[in-house]
Structures are given as C-alpha cells and as structure tokens.
Deep mutational scan, measured.
Amino acid sequence: IGSLMYASIFGNVSAIIQRLYSGTARYHTQMLRVREFIRFHQIPNPLRQRLEEYFQHAWSYTNGIDMNAVLKGFPECLQADICLHLNRSLLQHCKPFRGATKGCLRALAMKFKTTHAPPGDTLVHAGDLLTALYFISRGSIEILRGDVVVAILGKNDIFGEPLNLYARPGKSNGDVRALTYCDLHKIHRDDLLEVLDMYPEFSDHFWSSLEITFNLRDTNMIPGSPGSTELEGGFSRQRKRKLSFRRRTDKDTEQPGEVSALGPGRAGAGPSSRGRPGGPWGESPSSGPSSPESSEDEGPGRSSSPLRLVPFSSPRPPGEPPGGEPLMEDCEKSSDTCNPLSGAFSGVSNIFSFWGDSRGRQYQELPRCPAPTPSLLNIPLSSPGRRPRGDVESRLDALQRQLNRLETRLSADMATVLQLLQRQMTLVPPAYSAVTTPGPGPTSTSPLLPVSPLPTLTLDSLSQVSQFMACEELPPGAPELPQEGPTRRLSLPGQLGALTSQPLHRHGSDPG
C-alpha cells in the first residue's frame, strides 16, 4: 500500500511539474524568437521594450494561443456562430445594431475584428487614413492633437468618421493612444458598406441611429477645401490634362476667341504652333527640309505637354522668318557652300510665315494684346468667377478644330508651292551661260556676264508674291485673308516669265 501511494503521488507530481515546464519551455522559446528578432533588426531601446511588454501581456492574456488560427480551423457556418458569440456584447448593447435580422448580425459579426491594445500603444496616428470604424468594449483611450489631450473615450464609445457622408476615406486629425488595456472591435469601411448593401432595409436605420462619439476626420483635408492638395495627390493619381488660365478682364471677355491653345513656353509662336517648341509643326519652317525628324516628334510632343491658354504674339512682318533660324542665316552668309535649293526654301518659309499670320487673323479676328503681368498667370479653374468647365471645354474643342483646319490648309498650300517650284525647275534647270562666239564683223562684242542661278530668282519672285499679296490685293481696312490656291498659281508664272525669257546656255562643266 505504501509503495502504491508513493507511486501515485510521485507520478502525479511529476506530471504536474512536467506540464509546468512544458508551458515555461514554450514561453521561453517564443521569447527567444522575439529577442532574436530584436537583435537581428537592431531595434532601439524604447521600441524594444514595448515589443517585450506586449509579448508578455499577450502570452498571459491568451496563454500563447493564436485565436485567429484556431477560429480559421472551423467551417464557415461554425465561424459565424463563434463570431456572433464573441461580439454578442457589442451587437446587443450598441444602439445602431438593434433591430437587425439574424442574418445581418451574422454577416456583421464575420466582418468585425477584435484588437487588444496595451497602455501607451498608439492605435491611430495623425494623418493616417481612416479605413475603419472603432467600437470600444473595454478600457479607455485618449485622443491628442500635438501634445494636447482633446478627448478621453471609454466603454461603448465610437470613434472614426461617418462613412455615409464621404465617398473616400479621410485623414485623422489626431493621435489615438490607449490609456489602459483596451479591447476594441473594428470593422473596415469596405466590409461595412458591403453588408449594408446586402441589407438595404437595415442601412437607413443604421446610419440614422449611429452616433460617433469623436469624429477623427480632418475637415481641412476634404477635397475642394484650401488644404486638400495632399489628399488630392493621394487619391487622384490618374489626373486628366491640367489647364491653367490667364485672368480675363471685362474688356477681354467681350471679345470671342481671344486665346489660343499652345504648349508651355510657346507664347511667341504662331497660331498653328503645336507639339515641339520653336515654330509651326514643332520646328522652324525654314529647317523643315533639312530635319525630317521633326514630323516624327510632333505626335509625342503634342500628347505629353499640358495645355496652356495664352494670348497671341505680336504680328510678324511678311518677309521675316518666324524666328530662331540660325540654319538659314548661316546659309545666307556662306552662300557659296550651301545647297542652291536652300534659297528657294527660304522664300517658301517667308510665304508660310505670311500665310500663317494672315490665317491666324482670319480665324481669330481680334487685335493683338500685350501679355498680362506675371502675377495674373496660372489662375486655377476652381477659383470664384471662372467660367463653367463645359464652356471652357467647348472653347478648347473649337480652337482645336480651327487649328486642324489651319494645319490642313497650310499643308495644301505648301504642296502647291512645291509643285510650282518643281515645275519651274523642270522647265528651266539651273545653269550658267557659256561665252558666246564673236560675230564675223570687226565690231565684236565682249563675252556675256554669267546669269544668276535660278534659286536666287525664285527667292526674289516669291518675296514679290508675298509683298504683292500682303499690300496690293487686300483693300484698305479689310481683314488680311489668305489668297486662294488658283490665284497664287496664276501669279507665280507671271512673275517668273520675264526672268526666264532670256536664252540660257548650259555650261560645259555643268553635270545637269
């Protein structure tokens, strides 16, 4: 009997000691992992102490058991019943959930998450997105703005933001810190809205009876308010094209079509300037034949640059190039080494500058006005007194259609001029006259002087055409309008007829 009692007592005591040691061994194993994590990542002392304290409290609170892992091991129907039991206190005593059906309560219970916070733990920081609604079931918390405590909340209090009033989550206007050990039930806004969409009859009752104890939403960050730039940057990543407008005076608003859609830094370009900076079609017209890549860069430059609305530039004389043409100036200075066709295309550029300027006046029909002061630039669209967005969009579309028509007509005119030049060069190729044979009589004449090349004649003739079109064909006081194609086609051969009437002889060394 004594040996039996000794064996039973010894066996029970050893089993008890073994169970104690097993729990202690698990605790030390998990604690060792936490300390190894702290050492590996070199976490500083204040945060390291918070980690160790939280682990110790969580171990004593749950005995080292992962409740979520245990809950996920059950089937979904059983999980709903378990969640309904775990959140029964909240669902029974909170006013917004009263009167809900059994199915609605089960769906809500599945969406709730339980959070346990030790003292000093910050649940929400200032500036964080308010993605959830919090219900306090135990403990107390404090809300701070800077170093000032603005509120202390306790059991059955609710904090967050009214989700039904805002389409997008706002930002917190303060820090939420736990004063004691707290148990909180939180539900994400997407989950709550999903359940309320499934039960629309409960939705009206819920929003009407929901009383948020403390609204954390920062009202200064609401979209459309003066301080909402940061919020707009976070939620409006896919922005449309940006529009900046110059201020319109009362006198300017009476004149229709007073602005032109141009790229940034293009205030001095012609009315047909689009795409790359520098001139019509993204580059100076005089350098068009020598740089074919300008047409390839036109599309990307047009689509990537934001639109700006600026006044037209001052008018340019008909014979003056659009500006920024070092290529043609070098050719004029060193005409001995340049291609003979460069002079002809220089005359073509003069005609283009004249036609572009006159067509700009035809479509816009307003006098040039000086540029406004820099303080009046970049007025935002949302400022008071601005035109409605639809009106601005319609004006932009009208300007775009005008620019497209202008570009089409300029292309047709350019093709006409090039065809005339090619026809003239085919009839009378460039050549130098040879020395004529002296006559049989004693009164022999001296050799004839060489005839100037055709490109120079073409430049003079085209300059005469531009001056003739600019000065004589337009009646005084009438708006400057571009001439039609047949009129220009008839004027060019008439001007060139006198020049080509002389018999030109080919030089023996000319390969053409």
Rank of each mutant, 00 (worst) to 15 (best):
P226H: 09
G268P: 12
P315Q: 10
P486H: 15
L459N: 04
L196T: 05
F312N: 14
T219M: 12
D336F: 07
I136P: 03
G227Y: 12
R395C: 06
A344Q: 12
A132Q: 10
L327T: 12
E329H: 15
L144T: 13
H205D: 11
M328E: 09
E161W: 02
A132Y: 09
V428L: 07
V428G: 12
G494I: 09
E407D: 10
C182E: 01
D157F: 01
P440L: 09
S140C: 10
P271L: 11
G257A: 10
C338E: 15
L403N: 06
R177K: 06
V417A: 07
T373F: 06
G227K: 10
P482S: 07
N173I: 13
V150D: 03
F345K: 10
E472D: 13
S463C: 08
L129S: 11
G139Q: 01
Y166M: 06
G494M: 05
N220S: 11
T408C: 13
S452W: 14
P511K: 09
P447S: 10
L421S: 04
E298P: 05
L184C: 10
T229Y: 11
R274Y: 07
P380E: 09
F206I: 03
D175L: 09
S287F: 15
G324M: 06
A478H: 09
V451M: 12
R401M: 10
P388K: 14
D460E: 12
V465K: 07
N173Q: 09
T249Y: 10
T229N: 11
V348G: 09
T373M: 09
V148L: 10
P438K: 15
V435R: 12
L499T: 08
V451R: 06
Q255S: 13
P315V: 08
L457S: 09
A415W: 05
G347L: 05
E230M: 11
T213S: 07
Q424L: 04
K240S: 15
P311G: 05
V451Y: 13
A151R: 04
S358Q: 13
E230K: 08
H505Q: 10
T416R: 13
L165R: 14
D330T: 10
P223A: 11
P300F: 04
A470T: 13
L165C: 13
L193A: 08
G160Q: 02
L144D: 03
P374S: 08
L193Y: 07
I136W: 01
E298S: 11
L396D: 04
P311K: 08
S294E: 11
E329P: 04
R145T: 07
Q422R: 08
L193S: 06
S342D: 13
Q238F: 14
P340M: 10
S303V: 11
R145E: 11
S244K: 05
P162L: 02
D252S: 10
Q502H: 05
P271I: 12
R368D: 09
S304H: 04
L129D: 04
P280D: 14
H188Q: 07
C338D: 10
M469T: 12
L366Y: 08
Q362Y: 13
P475Q: 13
S284V: 14
R316E: 12
A470K: 04
P306T: 09
P300Y: 01
L457N: 09
T436W: 09
R389W: 15
G174M: 06
Q255G: 10
P453Q: 10
M469L: 08
M425G: 09
P447H: 08
V176Y: 03
P289Q: 12
P455S: 09
S305I: 03
R274L: 10
R189A: 08
E393L: 14
F202G: 03
N339F: 15
A267Q: 10
S452T: 08
S313Y: 11
G139H: 01
S305T: 05
F214D: 01
L421T: 06
D336E: 07
D190H: 07
E320D: 12
S305W: 15
S411A: 09
P450A: 09
T213M: 05
T213Y: 01
C182Y: 01
T445W: 06
I212Q: 02
G347K: 04
P511T: 07
N156R: 06
G234V: 11
S208Q: 15
V392W: 15
S375I: 04
D330S: 07
G512Y: 06
K242P: 10
L376I: 07
P479T: 04
P380Y: 01
S335M: 12
G234I: 13
L381A: 04
L376M: 09
P264Q: 11
L133A: 01
R266Q: 10
Y199T: 01
R241W: 10
R389C: 04
L231H: 13
M425F: 07
G139M: 02
A178K: 01
I212W: 02
R274M: 05
T416E: 04
L192K: 01
K333S: 10
V150H: 04
Q402N: 06
E298I: 10
G233E: 12
L133K: 01
A431Q: 14
P315G: 10
K240H: 12
P442M: 13
L462D: 13
L165H: 11
L420S: 06
N173S: 13
S208Y: 06
S172Q: 01
G347C: 03
G356A: 08
R189D: 02
T253H: 13
G233Y: 11
P292V: 05
S466K: 08
G323E: 03
S291I: 15
S509R: 08
A267S: 10
P280A: 10
F245D: 10
N378M: 05
L153T: 03
G512K: 05
